[in-house]
Simulated scan of single mutants.
Amino acid sequence: MPDVGLLLPGTAGDEGTDDVAVLRALLTAEAAWVRAQAAAGLVPDGAADVVDAAAAGLAGTGASGRDAAEELAREVAAQAAAGGNPVIPLLAALRAAAPEHAATIHAGLTSQDVLDTALVLVLRDAARTAGADLDRARTAAARLARTYRDAPALGRTLAQAAVPTTLGARFAGWLAGLRAARDALASAAAGLPLAYGGAAGELSGVARLTDDPFALVDAWGAELGLPVPPGPWHTTRAPMTRAADALAETCAALGHVAGDVLQGVRPGTDELREPAAPGRGASSAMPHKRNPVLSVLLRRSALAAPHLAATVRTAAGLAADERPDGAWHAEWPALRDLARHAVAASRLGAELLDGLEVDAEAAARNLRAALPDAHGVGLAPALVDRVLAATDDRTEEP
Results as ranks from 00 to 15, higher is better:
157 T>M: 14
299 R>Q: 15
74 R>A: 08
130 A>P: 13
50 V>Y: 07
304 A>L: 15
343 V>N: 04
342 A>W: 01
295 S>F: 00
339 A>M: 11
189 A>M: 07
44 P>Q: 10
57 G>C: 00
95 R>N: 06
180 A>H: 03
290 R>Y: 11
319 A>K: 05
121 L>S: 13
242 R>M: 05
376 G>C: 05
214 F>E: 13
190 A>E: 15
223 E>S: 11
345 A>T: 06
392 D>V: 04
134 L>A: 05
104 T>D: 14
206 V>Q: 07
175 L>V: 06
330 A>M: 01
324 P>Q: 07
26 L>S: 04
218 D>P: 00
144 L>H: 14
71 E>K: 03
295 S>K: 03
35 R>D: 15
100 E>M: 02
230 P>G: 04
260 D>N: 06
395 T>S: 13
384 V>E: 06
115 L>S: 11
278 P>M: 02
49 D>E: 15
142 A>V: 03
301 S>G: 08
339 A>T: 12
93 A>W: 00
335 L>E: 02
61 T>Y: 00
176 A>D: 06
117 T>D: 09
369 A>T: 12
5 G>D: 05
141 A>V: 07
84 G>D: 11
79 Q>G: 07
260 D>W: 00
39 A>N: 12
8 L>D: 13
349 G>W: 11
311 T>W: 04
96 A>P: 09
273 R>N: 08
